[in-house]
Write a protein that binds this DNA or RNA. Structure first.
Lengths: 390, 390
DNA sequence: ATAATTAGTACACAATCAGTATTAATTGAT
DNA sequence: ATCAATTAATACTGATTGTGTACTAATTAT
């Protein structure tokens, strides 16, 4: 149920209106009677609120259509649906090595999309320039211009202090101290909501993907690095300084190689996508890529599946401890190696082995539903200011 | 600000009433005008609500007293204070080896307290019998009987499924499958709210101790076992099946001794209070106890401090990973060895070493303020149904 | 056609909050 | 001592809102 509002009558009405909009957002199309049943608000009030919302153009009636009815007889309901608000939202996903931009209707239906490879890590300014250029291209393809933009969200490959909007951590020199939101805003002339890429992915899967409806979820992004977005109590957990979920730098080998973070034997040094390719390369003549590795896995290549399974077990070892502590309902695996069944089953095996039986029993481990779109969908959710934000 | 309520006018009024009660609970004594300023509710509404509350006996006026005034002139305010509601609340803390019962006014001022040593782990039924007996004794001391009890809360040494109220995990045979709340209710004739002891401790420190005012806190209970209560986003995080915070069974030595949970090398096998005493005993002729060990540490005994410091480092190693994931504002150390400065500084050192610098910098590591009363105070908070519950 | 059933609305009503006097109680200046 | 100034509390009025009841609308089954 919805929460959080003020103390006046006006607030109360706004609250009820929000409850109805939420119900419509999750259920698609409902009649006024359905809304009254679902929300607990009386039919008369629903009628009144819906009337206002129709006047404001927030919802539209869907008359005469199918009008499916349960009992058989009775007056057919007039279904209500959220109106697609004018304008579009823009989602920007800055990965370590790619930039993806999506332009979507405010119902989050994607209208245009652009992806390019880019060395984001080492050229922050260039990446932001490219993102702005891609945004303009995608807007043009969608038949829009910057004036029609209602919101912009962005995921960036590093921890963001979500009060100041600055990149706090020192992992990527070209990003250090930067305010990526302000930077993109300068280029687009529109405010930008920013979160790190793992949070964006979590938000994407939470709003539109495999994590929908769960209160406590760990979203793991396994790609060039390893990060996590934690959904706790139905909300994204960012922590005191906005760096919660940084599981990539948990030490898994005391005497492992030195990580870019300065520590030794971090999870990230063991299971990053480049590392896996490096492990697998000697067995192949062709130049391997992540996509090729996953394809080999699908085709049953033992080496590829072994590498992915081992990586899953290593990640699962870390997640097991976290699941012991957090007892979540689901682990959703994303990132570009996330779709690998071998990786997911490796995580599952490791969690089953190392987490407490009760925690493991309550846990569902799945690949994300959105694939490499999770982050950009999350960026769209940020732009739409969907409720799940903290 | 307060949150969470329904959609009707009645709900709105209840909400505003709650807002006022909250303000009074935190600020002690306020005039109606103060309340209007603090809560944002209009003076007229505050007057009306306060009138109702006076009629119901929820608040009392404090006329003529000091009546401190800011400006100097003007009609002196009538201060309002929460009335101490009739009746008392009972908190029961079942540790592994002790039982503690407190009877408190509903303002959480403790009226009577009883503590005994008891082998709770191996005799659940006996422990509950003893708890009921102690409750009656403490009630008598406070000049009350069971009829005057307004609420009972209890912390138990094992994970509780907080929907069914049953002990879920299999760690303690005599407790397996038991419904301790229902059992104590049968003995006292009064409903009992139950949580595990680490949650109770967290709730105690959150409501009355070192964790007050923080949104994200890890409370660690270091005693016969090691457990944690996680406060995330200002609320106790119980997880999907109510077993969140079970950090005692994180593996810290792959080839360590077998734990009572069946796994090997669990944190609990390395740093439980009995284990520390066992480590320290050879250097002493007298039979050591936990209290004596802490006293030795205070007196500067190198061995005792070394053992405690090492234990802190081991715990800190586990907490570092958790702090990387959760980025909390504070770690509060409780349990019977929690007051040891060596333990706390060991945790601090380990966290500084193994957690990311940003997460460590945001973190405050302290001993709990409530000492061995944390759990029973948390049980009182449960009984008072203080807001922090999930 | 008619009854039954379900959806949606109109209207009277009560609950609630806010704004504006009005009254109350005190200080300080004359 | 008296009176203005100041702050607190309340009474009253008015507007907004949600609910319940009665009513109309639209369809199916008989």
């Amino acid at each position: 149920m919805r929460t959080r509002h003020g103390s006046s009558l006006e607030d109360l009405r706004r609250f009820n209106r929000g409850t109805i909009l939420d119900a419509l957002a999750t259920s698609g199309a409902l009649s006024r009677a359905d809304l009254a049943r679902v929300t607990g608000v009386s039919r008369a009030t629903v009628s009144s609120l819906v009337h206002d919302m129709l006047t404001d153009g927030l919802v539209v009636e869907e008359r005469g259509k199918g009008t499916p009815h349960k009992g058989g007889s009775g007056r057919p309901p007039i279904l209500l649906r959220l109106a697609t608000p004018p304008g579009v939202v823009v989602g920007v996903d800055l990965g370590h090595r790619h930039i993806r931009v999506a332009v979507a209707e405010r119902t989050s239906v994607i209208r245009a999309e652009r992806t390019i490879a880019f060395d984001v890590d080492h050229d922050a300014a260039g990446a932001l320039d490219a993102a702005a250029r891609l945004t303009e291209q995608a807007l043009a393809e969608a038949g829009q211009d910057l004036g029609g933009v209602a919101g912009v969200g962005m995921g960036v490959p590093g921890p963001v202090d979500w009060r100041s909007g600055r990149i706090t951590s020192a992992v990527l020199p070209s990003w250090r101290g930067l305010s990526p939101g302000a930077e993109l805003e300068r280029r687009l002339g529109h405010p930008v909501s920013v979160d790190n890429d793992a949070y964006a992915g979590a938000l994407g899967e939470l709003s539109y993907g495999a994590a929908r409806g769960f209160d406590d979820v760990i979203y793991v992004k396994a790609a060039g690095g390893v990060g996590a977005g934690l959904v706790l109590g139905g909300r994204l957990h960012r922590g005191t300084s906005g760096i919660a979920g940084e599981v990539g730098h948990v030490q898994v080998h005391a005497d492992g190689p030195v990580c870019r973070c300065g520590s030794r034997g971090c999870l990230e040094t063991q299971v990053s996508a480049p590392k896996l390719i490096q492990l697998l390369q000697p067995a192949h003549e062709e130049e391997l890529t992540v996509a090729r590795m996953l394809e080999l896995g699908r085709q049953g290549d033992a080496g590829a599946n072994r590498v992915l399974d081992d990586a899953g077990r290593t990640i699962g070892r870390v997640l097991a401890d976290l699941c012991n502590s957090l007892n979540p309902a689901a682990v959703v695996v994303g990132g570009d190696i996330g779709p690998s069944p071998a990786l997911v089953s490796g995580i599952r095996d490791s969690v089953d082995r190392y987490a407490q039986p009760d925690a493991a029993a309550a846990l569902r481990v799945t690949a994300g539903e959105l694939g490499d779109r999770a982050e950009v969908m999350g960026a769209l959710a940020l732009a739409l200011n969907v409720s799940a934000a903290a």
